[in-house]
Computed example of a mutant assay.
Amino acid sequence: MGGTGKIVKRKLSNEVFDRLYELIRSGDYPPGESLPSERELMESLGVGRPAIREAMQSLERQGLISIQHGQRPKVLQPTASGLISQLDLTARHMLMQSPESLEHLKEARTFFEVGMAQRAAELADAADVARLAALLQRQRSALNEDCEAFIAADMAFHRGIAAVTRNPIFTATSEAMLGWLARFHSKVLHWEGNEQTTLTEHEGILRAIEAHDPAAAAQRMADHLRRARALYQSAAKEAGARAGESLLT
C-alpha cells in the first residue's frame, strides 16, 4: 500500500539546520552578520550543544557561514568560486576513480575555453588586452625558468581570458577545471620542444581578442586545445610505455 511506510524520525541537527537556513535565506541574518551564539540557540531552540554544532558544521560545508574560534558564526556572501570550490574534493575523487570522467572533463574544458575566447573577443577593452599581453610576456619569460613556472604562466593566461568575460561563473569554473587537469596531468603538461608553438598559439588568440574577432578567437582556441590534447595523449602513452619497460627490467 502506497504511503504507509514507516515515518523516519529526523535528527535534531537536521531540524536545527533547516531553521537556521530559513533565517539566512529569508534575510533575517544577511551576509556579514553573525548568527546567535551556541548558548542562545540552545535556549531558543530547546536543543543541546551537539545538535547546534553539527548543524553549524553543515552550514559551513555548504559555504553559507564561516566559523572562527572564539567568534560567532558569520553569514557569508554566496559566490561562484565558493560554490565551485565545494565540489573540489568530490570532483578529484571522481577523476581518480574514473578515466572516462577525465576525458569528459577535457571535452568540457574545450567547450568552455572556446566559448570564453569568443566572449572575450566581444568584450575586451584596452586594459584587458594589456593584462593578457602581460600574462603572455610572463609566459615567455618563464622559458628561462623551470617547467612548473611555464605551466603556471600558461594556466594564468587561460584564467586571464576567463576574467575578460566578466562572468564570475565562467571564471570560477575555468579555475576549477584547470586545477583538476593540472593535478591529473602533472606528468605530461609540459612537452619538451613545443613551448614556442604554445606561445605562438597564445599570441594568435590574443590578437584575435584584440581585433574583436569572436570567430577567429574561438577557432584559434579550438585549434590550440586540439593540439594540446593530442600531445597529452601522446605523452601519456609514452609515459605508460616507459613504466611498462621499467617493470620488465
Rank of each mutant, 00 (worst) to 15 (best):
T4D: 14
K11L: 15
K11C: 12
S13N: 15
Y21I: 12
S26T: 15
G27D: 12
G27Y: 15
G27W: 15
Y29W: 12
E33C: 09
L35I: 06
P36G: 04
S37R: 01
M42L: 01
E43P: 03
S44L: 04
L45Y: 12
G46T: 13
G48R: 09
R49N: 03
A51C: 06
I52V: 05
L59K: 06
I67A: 02
P73K: 07
V75Y: 09
P78N: 12
T79A: 06
S85C: 04
R92E: 03
M96D: 02
L102S: 10
L105F: 00
F111S: 13
E113Y: 00
E113H: 03
A117G: 02
Q118G: 12
A120H: 04
A120M: 01
A130Q: 11
L136H: 08
H158E: 02
R166H: 07
N167Y: 07
F170P: 00
A172W: 06
A176Y: 10
S186H: 08
L189K: 09
L189G: 11
H190Y: 15
E195H: 13
Q196C: 10
Q196L: 14
T197P: 02
L199Y: 14
H202E: 01
E203F: 05
E203D: 14
H224C: 00
R226L: 00
R227D: 14
R227N: 13
A230W: 12
Y232H: 11
A235T: 11
G240L: 07
R242S: 06
R242I: 06
L247A: 07
L248V: 06
